[in-house]
């Protein structure tokens, strides 16, 4: 029997497998050259990019929490032009889909960053970052107001033909509303979800453990929340979904696929084990064989939901 098919189509982009490295956990991808074979990844999403370089937040920026990681990096980055000039040509040597995470302090800046990439070769799609909880302007402010979400996505839609994938915030009461706002504004797919707004306190000093005060929680701790939101979004819109949140094993990835995600993004697990892709791919193949399935796409959206009493 031939090995099961792991390739998926995501908003018209062929991914050789459904594993994509999540923004902010994989640098610009080139940092992992020599450590792992980037061509094994279905794709990768760059660290968030503005028009200009950014310092990010003061330190400390990281704190470990139970089965989780709290961060407030604050979108430190090289800016979109340096990325297009220095990084994209290097990424072109690897056979993987490159997504760029687009940030902005204003609706206009999002469109400007997207426009700056319009002629750059080697970009498969744009992930629109409307959900970073760690910046004072923009970020979450666009992601927790459906009208603002619509405005950002529509503005970027006007300047690019590339697939647009807004990254949704979990810090909202009804994520389906935001998924529909994105779909109405012309999104081609959705990333579900960014980090949960959190806080950790050093009780001795009575100060927050992060210099920014609050941070974004990621890792296995948030997985049940992210799976639930992926399921809600999949029921609300027809768009393909990247399921994201604490995935570090094949079973974790399968939860999101079964809930309705077309593919998944691996985040915090990149920090814990750069070899995580090999383990998950092997586990996905094992699962498909064990269930007599020849194609990973047969799993997507197959949740057997019991009748609620």
């Amino acid at each position: 029997m031939s090995p099961p098919n792991l390739a998926v189509d995501f908003a018209g982009i062929r991914l050789k497998n459904p594993l994509v490295a999540a923004s902010g956990t994989f640098g610009y991808g080139v940092e992992y050259e020599g450590i792992l074979d980037l061509s094994k990844l279905g794709g990768l999403v760059s660290k968030g990019l503005y028009m200009t370089p950014r310092d990010g937040n003061p330190t400390p920026r990281l704190a470990e929490t139970p089965s989780g990681l709290l961060n407030a990096i604050g979108l430190q980055g090289v800016g979109v032009r340096a990325f297009a000039r220095d990084v994209l040509p290097r990424l072109a040597r690897h056979d993987t889909a490159v997504f760029v995470n687009v940030c902005g302090d204003s609706v206009e800046e999002y469109a400007e960053v997207a426009a700056a990439l319009e002629d750059a070769p080697g970009v498969a799609g744009l992930e629109i970052n409307i959900s970073c909880p760690n910046v004072k302007k923009g970020g979450l402010a666009f992601g927790n107001d459906p009208a603002m979400t619509h405005a950002v996505v529509a503005a970027v839609r006007k300047v690019t033909k590339r697939p647009l994938i807004p990254k949704l915030s979990p810090n909202v009461s009804d994520i389906a509303t935001f998924a529909r706002a994105c779909a109405d504004a012309g999104a081609d797919g959705l990333s579900c979800v960014n980090t949960l707004l959190g806080m950790a306190i050093d009780v001795e000093s009575r100060r927050p453990k992060l210099a920014f005060g609050t941070g974004g929680l990621s890792g296995p701790a948030i997985r049940p929340v992210a799976v639930r939101m992926t399921w809600q979004v999949a029921r609300a819109v027809k768009l393909p979904i990247f399921g994201i949140g604490g995935i570090s094993s094949a079973a974790d990835a399968l939860e999101f696929l079964i809930a309705g995600a077309t593919a998944v993004q691996i985040g915090t697990a990149n920090f814990v084990d750069p070899g995580v892709y090999d383990r998950i791919l092997a586990g996905l193949s094992d699962y498909l064989v064990r269930h007599g399935l020849g194609d990973v796409r047969e799993v997507v959206g197959t949740l057997q939901m019991p009748e609620r009493a």
Binding site: L62, N270, P274
Partner: peptide, 16 residues
Amino acid sequence: DPWMGCGVGTCLGCVV
């Protein structure tokens, strides 16, 4: 020896 997440320059947690 700051707090370090990844060791390879991607998490940007250990900056000085």
